[in-house]
Amino acid sequence: MKSVVWGMRHWLKTNQGIGVALCLLSGSLLLYLYLAPWASREMRDGFTLGFFPILGTTAMLACALVIVVDVYRNDVEGGVELGRPSDILIVVAFLAACYVFFLASLEIGFLLAAPVFLFASMQWLGLRPWPLAAGVAVAMSILIYAGFTALGIQLPSGPLPF
């Protein structure tokens, strides 16, 4: 039983396993496009509105199918081999941090948001000692802001008077 589970988990990491997942993804996209009402609308040169998107999706599906069956199907890609499920959480955390920084800079201005973002992420990635990280975060934010301003590009300034 244990070995079956291990086998399943290993298979999911092979090119074949991921290929099957990609087939499902692109297949559902294809189905969605095929059923979308706009896709069948005909343009004046005879092509339907959905022709080229469907072409792209079909190509994706075809490639995914080849990945499932070709000679490399049992290989496990290095990046996948090393991957852990929690990687996804970390990546999402990074992306969310970036987006929060962006929204914050629109609200409270770049000069307040950027040092916080830089300092927090430098700490998270393990930059020590912290006073150095704080100094770099503040200095870099001011430098970037000043540089952009000098070039005539206004970064979001928020409530600060400058």
Partner: peptide, 18 residues
Amino acid sequence: HLAKGMLSAAIGLYLGTI
């Protein structure tokens, strides 16, 4: 791995039609 290269191309083709 040619199939992966072509998959990448297909994604680009699809994104370009948006």
